[in-house]
């Protein structure tokens, strides 16, 4: 309906656009060719093996590392200029790979310090709540556990109302409950129209959170898009499994020429396993069979290729080049 009201409105500029980025750490060419975009309301995951150049890419975005080549626009500004950095840092929230806070301040003091630096500070209680630190507000930072420190990093990143969040492995060291709570927070931020760029080595996390991912290996983007799209382009196939109860009619050993899948029928005609680029034709055949024999397809499972499957393929081929 919104579309109908603004039929000709152009898509808004992405919050972050990186195109053909190259960047160095000292004499090491850490990033050779990375491109990615983050739109408002989107959680974008930047994935890749250790040393692939993720942190370096984020440091360019934040203005801590100079680009050797390529273009970088962050919230419409160029992080290579002092004025650009100033504008970016008013509206960005960052969780660095290794965060640092004054050990002699309490959690509350640390958050008050960061609130005072923001144009529009978030209420202290809300920050503590979002990061799950309400019970640690009075503690000195030096006496926090590793995971609690990581939560503090997140709370600090949320001290303002950042339009773009840059999170470098934000859930490292989190227990499962904390991780899921963090996912909720990140989803909430995206639902609120903020953009999130995060790196993670938990592919499950990326799949849970991100509509779009960029995979980098040895400093270059090797794939980007939705998890499904990447798998399709890699030619990865969905896995279809049908497990029938012993009293069900048997599957015919040959399902005909239309299934377009590598399949195997076993277990006396009660178990089917198949790999298919497109599971639809096989599912249609199975549905027709189910109707003709009058037995439901209760034990049917279709699993699209996971992000992990794609990641393995992408980073395995690239590893040899390093």
């Amino acid at each position: 309906m919104d579309d109908a009201q603004h039929p000709t409105e152009a898509a808004p500029d992405p919050l972050l656009a990186v195109e053909g980025l190259a960047a160095s750490r000292g004499s090491v060419r850490a990033v050779r060719d990375v491109s990615l975009t983050v739109e408002a309301g989107q959680v974008h995951a930047l994935l890749g093996p250790n040393g692939a150049g993720k942190t370096t890419t984020l440091d360019v975005v934040l203005g801590f590392c100079a680009a050797d080549a390529g273009t970088v626009r962050v919230l419409g500004h160029d992080p290579a200029t002092a004025t650009g950095r100033r504008a970016i840092r008013r509206e960005i929230g960052m969780v660095p790979q290794e965060g640092g806070h004054y050990p002699y301040l309490s959690v509350r003091e640390t958050l008050e310090m960061h609130r005072g630096l923001r144009d529009r500070p978030r209420p202290l209680g809300e920050m503590l709540e979002l990061a799950g630190l309400a019970h640690r507000a009075g503690r000195r930072v030096r006496s926090l556990s590793g995971g609690e420190r990581r939560r503090l990093d997140l709370a600090v990143a949320l001290a303002g109302y950042p339009r773009l969040l840059v999170l470098d492995e934000p859930t490292t060291g989190f227990d499962p409950a904390a991780r899921e709570a963090m996912w909720e927070v990140i989803r909430g931020l995206a639902a609120d129209g903020r953009g999130v760029l995060l790196t993670t080595h938990y592919l499950e996390e990326a799949q849970q959170l991100s509509g779009s991912v960029t995979v980098v290996a040895a400093g270059a983007t090797v794939a980007s898009g939705s998890s499904d799209g990447i798998a399709r382009r890699l030619g990865l196939r969905s896995r279809i499994v049908l497990e029938l109860p012993p009293d069900a009619p048997r599957l015919p050993p040959d399902l005909g020429p239309d299934v377009e899948a590598d399949l195997e029928v076993a277990g006396d005609g009660h178990r089917l396993e198949a790999l298919a680029a497109d599971p639809a034709p096989l599912l249609a055949v199975l549905a027709a069979w189910s109707r003709s024999v009058g037995h439901p397809l209760d034990g049917l499972e279709v699993r699209p290729p996971s992000l992990e499957d794609s990641y393995r393929v992408l980073t395995a081929t690239k590893d040899g080049e390093r």
């Binding site: 934040l62 100033r86 640092g100 806070h101 923001r118």
Partner: peptide, 17 residues
Amino acid sequence: YHRDMGILKTLVATPLS
């Protein structure tokens, strides 16, 4: 020390220039 601990980076990434 504060640089080593990542504190300077955290503070510089805020509107405090």
